[in-house]
Nucleic acid binder design. Sequence first.
DNA 1: CATGAATGAGCTTTCATTCAT
DNA 2: GATGAATGAAAGCTCATTCAT
Lengths: 216, 216, 216, 216
Amino acid sequence: MSSRKEKIIETSIELFNTKGAINTTTRHICDELGISVGNLYYYFKNKEEIIIVIYQKFMSELGAHFTAVDEKVDTAFDYYKFLTAQMEYEYQYRFLRLEMANLIQAYPKVREALEFGVKIKMQQLTYLYKHQMNFGYLKKMDEQEQEFITANTMIIGSQWEIYWILSHCENELKRRRNGVLNLLYFMKPYMTKKGLEETNLLESIDFLQKENNETV
Amino acid sequence: MSSRKEKIIETSIELFNTKGAINTTTRHICDELGISVGNLYYYFKNKEEIIIVIYQKFMSELGAHFTAVDEKVDTAFDYYKFLTAQMEYEYQYRFLRLEMANLIQAYPKVREALEFGVKIKMQQLTYLYKHQMNFGYLKKMDEQEQEFITANTMIIGSQWEIYWILSHCENELKRRRNGVLNLLYFMKPYMTKKGLEETNLLESIDFLQKENNETV
Amino acid sequence: MSSRKEKIIETSIELFNTKGAINTTTRHICDELGISVGNLYYYFKNKEEIIIVIYQKFMSELGAHFTAVDEKVDTAFDYYKFLTAQMEYEYQYRFLRLEMANLIQAYPKVREALEFGVKIKMQQLTYLYKHQMNFGYLKKMDEQEQEFITANTMIIGSQWEIYWILSHCENELKRRRNGVLNLLYFMKPYMTKKGLEETNLLESIDFLQKENNETV
Amino acid sequence: MSSRKEKIIETSIELFNTKGAINTTTRHICDELGISVGNLYYYFKNKEEIIIVIYQKFMSELGAHFTAVDEKVDTAFDYYKFLTAQMEYEYQYRFLRLEMANLIQAYPKVREALEFGVKIKMQQLTYLYKHQMNFGYLKKMDEQEQEFITANTMIIGSQWEIYWILSHCENELKRRRNGVLNLLYFMKPYMTKKGLEETNLLESIDFLQKENNETV
DNA sequence: CATGAATGAGCTTTCATTCAT
DNA sequence: GATGAATGAAAGCTCATTCAT
């Protein structure tokens, strides 16, 4: 059972995702919860803090789920499993990605938090790619290329949704599968023969495509 | 010399890019220009119309610059030249990409316009990729993969900036070069040997990297 | 053929009647006419003056139509003919009656004009009723009763429409016939036997009722 | 002691009656009360709602005062008492009658409310007149005539004031007495001998006339 | 802890009117 | 005569935030 403070966070996330964080008023949140505005401000200094706390929650959940590959152990990374799970999390906080630009403009502390988040994710990703290269699952590439592949991964991984929204893909589930496909297809050309054989990347692509074809 | 209406557009673009379109009020625009509010509304029905007109200006400038490859002529596409020019344009209207999610939430007609824009760009890109495949510059791939490569191109092409902003890349010029590099690196693995030889893709990457290293 | 000034008046009347004088902007009038705002203000000092001129036009048309009964000649007054014609005129200027209260609040000179108009009409009506009493068409009554019968005639004569609008009588023609019936029925109990015989009041009522029953 | 919400209503009524509802801004109301704009909007969604609430208040007060005559009981209706009391109420909300046309143009929900009010009042009046006819206080008349007598009663009953304003009757009290006289005189010719004897209609007229003569 | 009334700056938009050309 | 750009006060309304209870 969640406390009042947690309930405010949960309701805020829901409203931010559906109506947009910028468009959602504090009153809105309170009405939805059936609490008073004063009460919300007892738990949170201001709207910015709500967003910050949401972001922290998001990061900690993501961190809990992400089990780093062991530096010394030779394992092919299961992209499908990882991305599907990650997308699940990310989708629950999608307003953070969608409204990024406006949020960092309006709330300086949100900017700081997001900057920190990008840094962390970039390190994790860099570590993972290096590991997969070392064990021959990913094609070797120089440091600079690595940097940009990492950047591209993160850009696609965080901004795929607005593209599919504008492409009239109205089904939420399909949209999310497309997001995973965006990333799987993105990885494909960087995989070695061994990589393709030992991860289930191609099979995952086929599977998601089939699922999507069966969805209206 | 530009007319009052054009000046409103120019000032709006400038303010939208620096402060955000959502955060910029009609009064801000008027104050910046030294005109009265009534005068702004003499030229534009409402704020939405200003954004729409800006978007149309952006699309027409982009269209004027984009010369489609001839279906029957065998030419290697000059990505560097194209992307550099395109980024130049896009950068002048970057609020459109950065605030996309909030803009389409607040202004229905902007949503329609952006949807239309995505459709057009996707068609052009699909056409270009097919052409380059036919003449052996790009590796062959099935329709579905093409669809997602196109999607990824557009996602990276429109959302690279927010990544570099959050990665503390404060220099505008460097940021823009990074955007081009994002796309060049993205293209690289899809190019055939012939493609790499006859386009200047690798040289362009080297050139931009060097330029960036020389910039603080 | 009417001059520019007359055309402004005509268009204003039309718009005032359909959209309301308070809701109709000067721009509205100009757009409808295809002239510039400045040009309208060349002919009229301000919006108030337009209304004043309309009111004068209304009064003069009404005066031209109203041929006073001769003091010495014994004639039964034809209420039906008179009212039908009068309603025709009044209907063309109905905003004057409907928006009376707001117009006199907003425009002091309109108030003066309307006060004058009421005075004139009251005199004409008083004269008519006295004449009809003298020749035995109307029942005799004391001065004070006369005053209030006159007042009631004018109230009904000017305010019937809002009642029928609120009673869901949407057909314009029917509404106007109802207005005439309001007044004919109002007169009925004041008529003498001779009055009822020599005017066509009862027949007019029957005629209008029949017409109305045949209209949807 | 009245609450803040009630005070807003009271002040609004006062300002609407003196300056007109259309001319009175929400800021006016707040300034008059010494409260902030935000506070007014805390209690009322918008200006329309204020008017609606005022109308409901008016209708409920009127309803509480109106005790319907018993269908089976033979009683002469006391027009004077009834009208004097009713005028008292109506006068406190006179902007509703005076600005009717503009109010229904500007506020759709006010239109609905007023239409409903007209319907209710018409039913009550019809019922009353039928009752008085059945017991011989009012002269018999056919359905159609009844309909128009009812209409005329309501027109005079709601629109007398604008007439007396335009007739330079500046004294509020006198104006209100005139309104009652308008209706009493209107009823007079429809009364039977019995009706005139058993109601105090004629005496009431005399009384009011005398009172008015004594007022400047 | 919890309420909800209160604030006030600020937003978008409207419109009668003016005036240089 | 005619144009239409320009003005600016004012309208209705929103919303994050505060604070007495």
